[in-house]
Design a protein around this nucleic acid. Sequence first.
DNA 1: CGTCCACTTGATGGGCATCAACCGAAGTGG
DNA 2: CCACTTCGGTTGATGCCCATCAAGTGGACG
Lengths: 239, 239
Amino acid sequence: MRGRYYCDRCAVREVSLCSEVSEAAAKELAPIAHHRRIPVGQVIQSDHQGLGWLAIIVSGVVKLVKAQKDGRLQIVGLQYPADFVGHPYATKHALIAEATTQLELCCFSRTAFENIMRNHPSLEQALYRRALNDLETAREWMFLLGRKTAREKVASLLVSIATRITRPIPGVAGDKLTLHFDLPLSRNEIADSLGLTIETVSREFRYLKTAGIVSTSGRRSITVSKPDVLQALAEGDCT
Amino acid sequence: MRGRYYCDRCAVREVSLCSEVSEAAAKELAPIAHHRRIPVGQVIQSDHQGLGWLAIIVSGVVKLVKAQKDGRLQIVGLQYPADFVGHPYATKHALIAEATTQLELCCFSRTAFENIMRNHPSLEQALYRRALNDLETAREWMFLLGRKTAREKVASLLVSIATRITRPIPGVAGDKLTLHFDLPLSRNEIADSLGLTIETVSREFRYLKTAGIVSTSGRRSITVSKPDVLQALAEGDCT
DNA sequence: CGTCCACTTGATGGGCATCAACCGAAGTGG
DNA sequence: CCACTTCGGTTGATGCCCATCAAGTGGACG
């Protein structure tokens, strides 16, 4: 489950935090990094759990969930490979972080990490920029939740996921023509991301399929055959 | 409209950024601060406008609006006195920032401010913490937009505003018993904050009034006579 | 082959949007 | 000084989108 992390084999080295900090900071981070594998569905941070460490996602997807006592849920963030999980300085988590897929994490002890931060402003700055990005993403999502229809919501989520994790279909020229990827979320998680019910999500998937915009196979695999139309739907061009 | 800013008369000195940075940093910030008055409704940042400076709000309220070409709006943030407006390092604004009330700002030239940041990690850290707070607030709001009913939304907004700008009613003992304040938002702005229409907002106000939870006078002035009930409504205790 | 579970599909209803009329306060101009 | 306009807000009537409730489907797995 745990072990030393070998940066030279790191899959996200060029896009993660590590590529944004000074060489000196990176050299200090490397020896305190630990590799960790997490199974689907495991909660990695909640309330007062998981406060002892911070992590960079190497592979997999993490959902950040806000819950109310009465059982209502809202997913308020999705973190993808190269994203950072956990906040330095935080003394408690207001959110639940849970693995929606199998995960590989590059973990740091919080105290060791914060010590390095103190000596390396470039690390703090990189985290600050990431926080601003997360804020921008959150506000984009607020617009979606407050002002978009169910159809636009589902289309938007698919576009958003696709831009983060799509791999071009082998043998097909041009990345824009057809996209294929595995959904990192269940229908329930999609509903909780969009402020909808699973039934509505299901119906919108049906619409997208009958309209020939996407096709699915199995529960997770999805192919977007008309990315431009999907994009237009996401922005409300009601054609 | 503009002039030197005198920190020793500053109304938010003890709660703003300035109180969170090193003394050395504060001493460098003071001479570059400029005072500025902004009338209601003025846009202070949008797209490529207002990129030249950053500000601390001394008095008044700023709304951050996300807009789509088709005219749909969503308010994605409210900034109150002592809050910071603008992001260092940003090269463009994804949002429109607009004065919902008359404003007093303490403004800094972006370049001068960023220079000071480079030499004072405490300043960068203070901004980072504020960004994390904003992120937390945004995610709280995402739950509201995605999962709360109109009634809960309106109650939540009133609670949120009250906790930021309420002044205890003179002559009444205990702050919890009755709260009084002026709404910094029009009905339209309230609707745009909550992902509702003005009509629905108006109806929910009516409900709150007939239930004896709040009373209003004029368009902006509001008195919360049962803060505990309002709080319960905000969290969905459907009594 | 039976059970389970995630998902789908259908029927119905409610919450909120939409459309429309009205109201009152604050100008505006003759 | 008073009709007229304007504008933000309220109130009412109607309808639609999406939630809710309920039943069905199909793949995975023992």
